[in-house]
Design a protein around this nucleic acid. Structure first.
Lengths: 130, 130
DNA sequence: CTTAATAATGTTATATTATTACATAGTGTT
DNA sequence: AACACTATGTAATAATATAACATTATTAAG
C-alpha cells in the first residue's frame, strides 16, 4: 500500500507541474506539458491525478474540470475543500476552510448523512474585479 | 427577451424529462430519451440545459455531469444550491439551503468576494446506506 | 535469492461530454 | 414588408475520460 509521502514517478511529475502553476490545470494541458518527461498518454495523467486527489495533495475544481494543488494542510485529512472562483478573471483561490468545515459537518449530521467530504465552489467577482 | 415562465418547445421537453426522473440525468441520456420528440442532436439538449440552469429551473451536479430539477423555490432567485450525494446508492438530494445560504454569503463577504452563487456537493453515506 | 502477489506503467483504442459553425425558421416591432 | 432577434436544426469536431490489456517494478514470503 502506498503511503502519503512516497509518490511514484508519474505522480511526482504531475504534482510538480500543478504546484508550479498559478492557475488550475486541465488534464490534457498537463499531458502536453509532460510529454517530454516520458508521459505519453491520457491514462498516465488521469491515474496520477486520481491518486493525488485521494491523498489530498490536489483538488479537482469540478466546474472547470481542472486541478489545483492543495493550499491548506487540513485537506490532507479531510479531503474537503472550498474555492472562490472569479467569473471575470477566472482566478481560483482555495479558502481556508476550517470554519466552513465545522459548520458544514454539523449540517451534514443534522440531515442524517454520514459525511466524508464536500466540495464547495463560490462564483462571483474577486476583490480586484469587483 | 425570454421571461421565466415562457419556456420554449425544447426547453419544455427537456425540463419535463428531468422533472419526471428520480435521479440526475446526463445530457446524452436526455438526448436518447427525447429523440422521438424531435430533438435529434446534442446542441439542442445543451442549449435547453443552459437556459434552464440560468433560470434556476434545474441544477447541474458538477461532480456527475448530470442535471436535476430544482426542488427548492429559493433557487429561482439565488441560483445557489447544495446537494448530498450518497457514494453507495448514488442518490442525490437537494438540501434546503436557506440557512447554508445565509452562512455562506456572510462568509463570501468576509473574504471580500462579490458573491453571485455557489455550488456545494456533500459526499458520504445517506441515512439508508450508513 | 527466487517466486508469487501486488502496484505502477505504457500503449492503443474507444467512450463520453461538450462546443463550433453555419443554415433555417419562427417571433415580435416598427 | 423589412428588420432585428431568438430559437431551432444539422453536421462536424473538440475536449474530457475510461477500458482493456501487455509489460515492468516493487514488495513480501518462503
Amino acid at each position: 500500500m502506498q503511503r502519503q509521502q512516497n509518490l511514484t514517478k508519474n505522480q511526482k511529475i504531475v504534482l510538480d507541474i500543478i504546484e508550479k502553476s498559478t492557475e488550475p490545470l486541465k488534464a490534457y494541458s498537463i499531458l502536453s506539458n509532460v510529454k517530454r518527461k516520458g508521459i505519453n498518454a491520457p491514462p498516465q495523467v488521469y491515474r496520477a491525478l486520481d491518486k493525488l486527489v485521494d491523498m489530498g495533495k490536489i483538488h479537482k475544481i469540478e466546474s472547470k474540470n481542472a486541478f489545483v494543488a492543495c493550499q491548506n494542510s487540513n485537506c490532507k485529512v479531510s479531503k474537503a475543500a472550498a474555492f472562490s472562483i472569479c467569473e471575470s478573471c477566472e482566478e481560483v483561490t482555495e479558502i481556508d476552510n476550517s470554519k466552513i468545515s465545522k459548520y458544514l459537518s454539523s449540517f451534514a449530521d443534522k440531515i442524517g448523512m454520514k459525511y466524508k467530504k464536500y466540495n464547495l465552489e463560490f462564483f462571483g467577482l474577486c476583490k480586484k474585479c469587483k
